[in-house]
Every structure is written in structure tokens, then in C-alpha cells.
């Protein structure tokens, strides 16, 4: 009896040890590139060229900062522009994807299945080529240097609709909708006040992904935003790389580091919803 108890305890200890060792290893692996990036932000271009990886800082932070701000990089403008675009994209994408998914999940309408198949099909179109058509179109209608073409298309985010649908399918008992109706709640209000809170973990997850994706998005903004005042942070970093002959790598890494900092903040803010979790059960009890 005791021996069996002991072996169970030994097993549990081994299990816990493995969990902590693996998680710590993975965490260190995740910190590594950030560490290199921050270290390189304090090193001179030539130090970086001589050996691109260093675990210890150097003393060129201020000179990198001077090079950075001496070029087209103005952190405040970039930050505000990036924020506008990313917040806009995230809010629109998360809200309207949930709404669309709710339409697919809670109602019975004739084109429902067809509409879902259609959304899936759009999601599967390779993005490579339709981007050419996209910016030709934006140039033609004269919408360059505006944030609209970067933000508004987010209303139609097929992959996110798909996720929200899958999430609702597992997490939304239709009885809740019915009881809301009996209480006299109108459909739109039901969605806003009952469904959205249920979806918090899903919303937070997708908000993070959408924010990160939009914040790091380079190629389309690079082509559509050609006016200095509209540059986002990644565009500014890309400008620092200028041409290969005389790239100031130290300041590039500093720019990259600055770009990533706001992402940390946003991520930490949203992460609590994933970590704590507002589970459905809590609502029912």
C-alpha cells in the first residue's frame, strides 16, 4: 500500500519536473531572439558585422539612437500611425467576425451553408497574387496614403470568422439565445450583451493575433503609404535598411526593438483573458 503510494508520488514528482524543465527550456528559447535583438541595439554596425550574435551589450545605444532619429525614423509618428491601423483592424476584425460567425451559428437561413462555404473558399485563395490586384485597385481609386484601405477590409476576415464559428459551435448552447428572447432581449442586443462576453477568450486570442499581424504587416503598407507622415513603425525600420551598401545595423536593431515593445504591452494586457479565462460555466452558474 505504502509502496504504491510512494511510486505514485515519485511519478508525480517526475511529471512535474519534466513539465517545468520543458517549459523553462521553451521559454528561454523564446527569449533568445529578443535578447540578441536588444543586445544588437546597443552595438555598432561594425561590431554586428564582425559577429552578428552577442549575448552581452555594448556601448553604442546612444549613437544608434542618434542615427535612428537622424534618419526618417520618428518613433512618435510611427507609433501613432501603427496604433491607428492596428487598433482599427483589430476592433473591426474581431467585432464583425464574431457577428458574422454568430449569424452562421444562431440562425437558420437558406444561404447559411452556402455563405459558410464561400467564406472558407475566400480563406483558401493564395494571398500572393491577389495582392497585385489589390494595390493596382487602390492606386486606381486614389486611396493611397490613406489608412482606410488598410483598416476597413478587416471587416471581412474569413479565417477569424471560421475560428469564431468553431468556437461558438463548442461553447454556445442555443438555449441561452432562446432564454434571452423570452426575456425580451432584441437580437442585436443579445449578441452584444450576452454572446460577446461568452466569447471573451476567443476574442482575446484573435485580438492578439490580429493586432500582431497588423502591427508587423509591412508589404502592403509599404506600397500604399508613401507619405512620410503616414509611415508605420515597420516602414520606418525598413527605411533604415535603405540599401545594402551602408546599412546601419545597430540602429536597425534599435528600431526593431522599439517596434516590438508596444506589442509586449498589448499582449500582456490581452493575455490575462486567455490565462484567467472567462469560461462559459461561470456564466451559467
Amino acid at each position: 500500500m505504502n509502496a504504491r503510494h510512494g511510486s505514485i508520488r515519485a511519478k508525480r514528482i517526475t511529471y512535474k519536473t519534466i513539465v517545468y524543465v520543458v517549459c523553462t527550456f521553451l521559454a528561454l528559447l523564446s527569449i533568445f531572439p529578443f535578447w540578441i535583438m536588444f543586445m544588437n541595439a546597443t552595438r555598432s554596425t561594425y561590431e554586428i558585422q564582425q559577429s552578428s550574435i552577442s549575448l552581452v551589450p555594448s556601448k553604442y545605444f546612444m549613437s544608434n539612437w542618434k542615427i535612428l532619429t537622424g534618419k526618417a525614423f520618428s518613433p512618435m509618428t510611427g507609433f501613432i500611425n501603427s496604433m491607428t491601423v492596428s487598433v482599427g483592424v483589430t476592433v473591426l476584425a474581431v467585432y464583425f467576425s464574431s457577428l458574422t460567425a454568430y449569424a452562421l451559428m444562431a440562425y437558420s437561413w437558406k444561404l447559411r451553408q452556402a455563405f459558410f462555404s464561400f467564406i472558407m473558399a475566400i480563406m483558401m485563395i493564395p494571398a500572393q497574387l491577389s495582392s497585385i490586384g489589390f494595390y493596382q485597385f487602390i492606386y486606381r481609386i486614389g486611396m493611397t496614403n490613406k489608412f482606410t484601405p488598410l483598416i476597413v477590409p478587416a471587416i471581412a476576415s474569413p479565417a477569424m470568422v471560421f475560428f469564431m464559428r468553431q468556437y461558438l459551435m463548442a461553447a454556445l448552447p442555443l438555449e441561452i439565445v432562446d432564454s434571452a428572447r423570452i426575456d425580451g432581449s432584441r437580437e442585436f442586443a443579445t449578441f452584444n450583451r450576452i454572446i460577446l462576453p461568452i466569447m471573451k477568450p476567443a476574442l482575446a486570442t484573435q485580438a492578439i493575433f490580429s493586432f500582431v499581424g497588423s502591427w508587423n504587416n509591412l508589404f502592403i503598407p509599404l506600397i500604399l503609404l508613401t507619405n512620410k507622415k503616414k509611415y508605420t513603425m515597420p516602414i520606418m525600420v525598413s527605411l533604415l535598411r535603405g540599401d545594402i551598401y551602408k546599412t546601419e545595423y545597430g540602429s536597425v536593431y534599435l528600431g526593431l526593438s522599439l517596434t516590438v515593445l508596444p506589442l509586449f504591452v498589448i499582449y500582456f494586457m490581452l493575455a490575462k483573458y486567455i490565462i484567467a479565462g472567462v469560461a462559459l460555466g461561470a456564466l451559467k452558474e
Partner: peptide
């Protein structure tokens, strides 16, 4: 309630 299915899908369809 079928009409709400259509109504709530409008933003997606228009943006697309």
C-alpha cells in the same frame, strides 16, 4: 429569426 442571419452578414459581404 432568419432575417437576422442575413442582416448580420451584411458588413462582411459589403467589405468583401
Amino acid at each position: 429569426y432568419a432575417k437576422y442571419g442575413y442582416i448580420f452578414s451584411i458588413p462582411f459581404v459589403v467589405a468583401f
